[in-house]
């Protein structure tokens, strides 16, 4: 209190928490739903709540955990599992790019932030700039912890309530797809240039056709990265707002609107 400097921003802890909860809420919702589906799958395959708890705590990857269940049931050799989990999760290699400085500010929680960084958390972190009253370091950590805990809780709810709920839940995992769609829409409104989106779409379809639906992820992300590097100057110019092509002007309205929302 005594040596408070003028430049030091004044953060409000309750508002930081509320902001973190607000930006996590769609993830919390979808994690509880998809985690629930995972819990039920494990329970039906005959595994215990401890399996579900440890998976949620230490793997924390929806796509891998859900793909893992049939592989466990089939008693896939452990060596094959190493390979399979690497293939399924290889996309995470791309997520840390650009987050080293931001996560280092977490101090002792730096390793935790690196670990607790699945698709959805990557989404919210890449999408926002915090208001001035929010402590960005604490907000990042709170967001990561809340999302992680909701994922674990979803799994546990599923494994415990799987017996009780007789309602057919198939299709509920579509919530994860919807979450990504929402984030795509948000980014579409926020990004000044849509070149990254076009690159992603092009890469995904080209690699889907060439490599097939099971193996397209890693090549698609690599191709996106290469194309983005090639188009660096063009994209930077477009992001700076000097680009008049691709109907940028018509999108300005939507952009302002979304800015006002925040």
């Amino acid at each position: 209190m005594d040596n408070k400097t003028v430049e030091k921003p004044v953060y409000s802890m309750p508002r930081t928490f509320l902001y973190a909860f607000g930006q996590s809420s769609p993830i919390i919702f979808s994690y509880i739903v998809v985690g629930f589906a995972f819990g039920i799958m494990m329970q039906e395959a005959g595994y215990t709540p401890l399996h579900v708890l440890l998976s949620g705590l230490f793997i924390y990857s929806g796509s891998l955990q859900i793909a893992m269940v049939p592989l466990i049931v089939a008693h896939t050799p452990l060596l094959v599992m190493i390979f399979a989990s690497f293939i399924i999760n290889s996309r995470y290699m791309f997520y840390g790019i650009g987050y080293t400085e931001r996560f280092k500010k977490q101090g002792v929680f730096y390793p935790y932030m690196i670990f607790a960084f699945p698709d959805e958390v990557y989404c919210v972190f890449s999408a926002n700039s915090y208001p001035s009253y929010v402590d960005p370091v604490k907000c990042d950590l709170m967001t990561a912890v809340m999302c992680h805990m909701s994922w674990v809780s979803g799994g546990l709810l599923g494994v415990f309530l799987g017996d009780v709920i007789t309602f057919d839940m198939s299709g509920i995992d579509f919530a994860a797809t919807c979450l990504f769609v929402c984030i795509c829409v948000n980014q579409w409104m926020e990004f000044k240039s849509h070149i990254p989106m076009y690159i992603g779409l092009l890469s995904a379809f080209v690699c889907l056709i060439i490599f097939g639906s099971d193996n397209f992820m890693l090549p698609a992300l690599s191709l996106s990265l290469v194309l983005l590097v090639i188009m660096k100057e063009r994209t930077k110019r477009a992001m700076a707002g000097n680009d008049t092509e691709e109907g940028i002007q018509s999108e300005d309205g939507a952009e302002e609107e979304s800015n006002n929302e925040r």
Binding site: G98, C123, A176, C184, F191, I195, A204, M217, L228
Partner: peptide, 21 residues
């Protein structure tokens, strides 16, 4: 640094395609 800012835009679309594969 540039990739860190731009990749999310590309990755999200790839993720949607991944979900629909």
């Amino acid at each position: 640094d540039y990739l860190g800012k731009m990749l999310p835009g590309a990755i999200m679309i790839v993720l949607v395609v991944y979900c629909l594969r």
